[in-house]
Structure formats: C-alpha cells, structure tokens
Amino acid sequence: MDQVMIKNSFYEKTARARILAVVDEHSFNEILKPAEIEVSLHLSALDIPGSFDDGVIIGTARLNGTPVHIMAQEGQFMGGAVGEIHGAKIVGLLHKAIQDQTQAVVFFVDSGGVRLHEANAGLIAISEIMRAMLQVRNAGIPIITVIGGTCGAFGGMGISACLSSTIIMTEEGRLALSGPEVIETVKGVEEFDSKDRALVWRVTGGKHRYLLNHVQALVEDDIADIRDAILTQLDAKVGPLDLEQLLKQQQQLEHQYQRWFGKNDGLQIWHEMGISQPEKIPMLSAHEVVLVKQG
C-alpha cells in the first residue's frame, strides 16, 4: 500500500517526472532540452554548480488528446527560485503558447520566488512572467496552475500563481507572499512561529486557501487526482480579465477584508464560517474538506 502511495505522489516527484506522470503517454515534447542552452554563468561566478535546465522544464504535451503547453519548476534545484535563464524559459513558453494558440497552459509552480544569487534579473524576470501570463489570459487561453511541491509558491511566484485562471492545490502545497521564516526573523516569533508547522499550514496551506476561495480546487497528493482536476478545468469556461471581472474581484477582496482582517489563524476563520468542528479540518482528506465546503 505504501509503495503505491509513494508511486502516485506528486510531491515526491521531480519536475520532469511530474510532467511525464500527468500528461498523455509519449506526448511530452521538451523545449530546450538539457545541453541546448548554457548553464547559468551567474551561479558559476559564485562557485555554485548550475543545472542544465536551470530548474524549470518546459514543453508541449497532450492531456486526453488536448494540446497544452506545460512547465514545471524543480523545487530541488535552488528552491525552484527564478533566475535569468529560468525566468526566460517560462516567459518564452508563455509567448509560444499565444503564438501556437494552444488550448491551455499548465504550470506546476514549485518556487520560493526570486533567486537571490541573481536577484535583479530574477525580480525583473518575475515581472516579465506576470505580464506574459496576463497576455496569455487576455488571448483567451486559460492558465491552470498546480501547487503541490516541496517549495510551495512564495514571493514573486506566489503573486504570479494568482494570475492563473485556476489554481489547483494539494494539502501539502503552500501559497503566500513572505515565507514564515522571513516574518519570524524580522517581526519576531510572536508574529509567526515558523517552526509551528501546523500553524504554517493553517495560514498558507491548501485547505485554508481552498476554504477561503483563494484557489479553485483542492485535491489529494495523487497524480490521478491532479490529472482529473486539470482535465475538469480544461473544459471550464474562463472569461477575460476585463473591467467587469476586476471590479468583481475588487469587491470580493474588500468583502473578505471587512469580514476577516485581524484574524491570525485559519482556525478562527473556519470556526466563524460556521464549519462544525473546524479543529478537525487538518485531519480530513482533501475530498472530505471539499464536502465540508459544499455544506
């Protein structure tokens, strides 16, 4: 049984293995394969070994026959952080998606944000990713993002992820701006105890994000579940980010703020949302949490 669970875990896989496991068999066509581009000079200048893919895999593939453009960040290489080459591969694929008029962009985000060793290039690259994602959306192409890796989606990649038309999260996934460690270092352990893993998950984890409508879907850490959730989203209709849509978003954000700002633990909000036995949420499966939300 354990064997099967490990085999199907998204979290435990490398970026390339995640793509190969989720897309149709033999359909993945990697763009800029290892050795087709140079290894980051910025890292070698700092005596840090680079990687031939600079921590992100990009390409085209099919999902149940539907052509998609897909990219996956490798959390095991420099925390999936964005440097010059890494960012350029993502921006390139987003532009290619528009050019090819693909059906959807699928993005496995697994990143702490800007790669500090290339801080300026990384920050600008993230800004370019943001603008390119908005261009893809405004071309009518959905962006389906999955957050379920070891590094979550933080910093600039936390912002970028939220420009997707859909986010699918696992319980293990985390989505936020500043890492809890950074908040603890600057503001003190009373503000955020980063060693309290349960608290970190109640603030940044998939279940909390799903219950508060920050993301659209919550799934188990299971390849088949994730693939099903992506397939469902492939058929969903997505509107453009026009004035009407952004006014609606603005209203939702203001409403959320009025209702919940000042709380500092997901548990308090779940309780006030009227969820019975909110303290049990962390123990429930993704499917059970979905049922709780649906009432």
Binding site: I183, E191, Q250
Partner: peptide, 28 residues
Amino acid sequence: QDLSRADELLCLNRTFAHLASCVDLLRR
C-alpha cells in the same frame, strides 16, 4: 510587502496579483 500573519492569512500575494492586473487593465 508588509510582513504580517494577518495579511498572509488573507493571501496578500493574491491581492498584489489583483493590483498588478488592474495596472495592466489601465495599460490596455
């Protein structure tokens, strides 16, 4: 960004993404 748990709890990065989308709408 402000470093605060209360802001992160309500997904500060998502609100930033919204702001960025609004600037992009202005451009368009």
